[in-house]
Structure formats: structure tokens, C-alpha cells
Amino acid sequence: MNCRECKEHLYEYLDRELTPAVEQEIRQHLTDCPPCGEQFDFEKLFLGFLRARCRAQGAPADLKRRILDELLDE
């Protein structure tokens, strides 16, 4: 696998969407090729950062109770 092929699978790899065989090929390339490894690490960090920043928010505390009350009227 060359750098271009490896980068084409960047997000599929990080999203765990590849077959084990392709995943293994990429893992091997990342070990052998530090520049690609650095880029994948950076992108992985970015996705983790997005998720962490957006998941703090949940539904308002009383929303569940209001929905349950509504279901009782059904």
C-alpha cells in the first residue's frame, strides 16, 4: 500500500468501517511511514475532540418526565 492509497482510507479507517484485511494493511503502512502515521494521529485527535466537545449536552432534565406524562394520556 502506498501513501495515496492509505490516505484515501483515512476516515474509513478511523471510523472502523474497513474489512480486517484492509485495516491490517493500513496499520502496517502507518507503522512503516511516520508522515502518514502523524497525519492519522492528528485526524484521530480531531475526531475525538469533536465528539468530546459535542456530547456534553443532553436533554433537559424534565423532558423525560413530560414525555412520560404525555404517554399516560395516550
Binding site: 494521529d41 492528528f42 485527535l45 480531531f46 475532540f49 469533536l50 466537545r53 459535542c54 456534553a56 449536552q57
Partner: peptide
């Protein structure tokens, strides 16, 4: 290493 991400707050990302 993308350390600048740490300084960006939730609201800005949203």
C-alpha cells in the same frame, strides 16, 4: 499534535 484544539471551547465547536 493539534494541541490548539484544547483551547477551543464547546460553544465555538457547536
Amino acid at each position: 499534535q493539534g494541541t490548539f484544539f484544547d483551547r477551543i471551547v464547546d460553544d465555538e465547536v457547536l
